[in-house]
Amino acid sequence: MTTAGGTPLFLLEFGDIVISFTPYTTSLFILALVFTLLVIASRPERQLDIAFGTDAYMTKEISLSEMRFRRFMAIACGLASMGAVVTGDLFDFCLFTALVGICNVGIVAAVKSRHVQNAAYQYGLVALAATVLLFGGSAMVAATTGTLSLPILATGTLPAVPLAVKAFIVIGVMGEGMAPFYAAKAEMFRAPGAPYVIMCSLSSLLIFLRVIEVVVQL
């Protein structure tokens, strides 16, 4: 059984949900793991701000409670991306993707900056709207093929999934934070706390990389 991500190294079975570790998904999984460990291990930086027109500058400090909350959210985000990159079930993938969307909002939710809050809010609206396409897409895949299992879908013996449905899933994932909708997210990166903010960008990247493999196989 060869998939777009290579021949599986091993399969982890939970009942009918099969988690497949192909070379591709394994590398993505390891990356998510490494960055999650980094989030746990590192403390936020103190961002410098320059007052325009003068030579005054100040550092932004992150309070302990804010740091704890954001660290928790970033770790949750890391776990959700790990789930999304290895899962062998289309609906689980969509669910994890939606979860990443929430966590991304959560990572910057505690930042006390109006710009960041505004960007996070707009991003959240887009992410929430995108879940319609995500869940709709996966439900339509189940309707046309009768299964949600990615390894079974990859065998190519089932009825073909319409292009529109594939587009649904891809646009849904893009809504969770890829290129055209990224504009809302870029403003979120103003927030101090590099290790956590990186998780926002890493998670959507990993999910985008996974959705390509998923859609190629459908």
Binding site: L38, A41, S42, R43, E45, R46, L48, A194, P195, I198
Partner: peptide
């Protein structure tokens, strides 16, 4: 001094 050293 301002950096997040582990990440840095």
């Amino acid at each position: 001094q301002t950096a997040s050293d582990t990440l840095f």
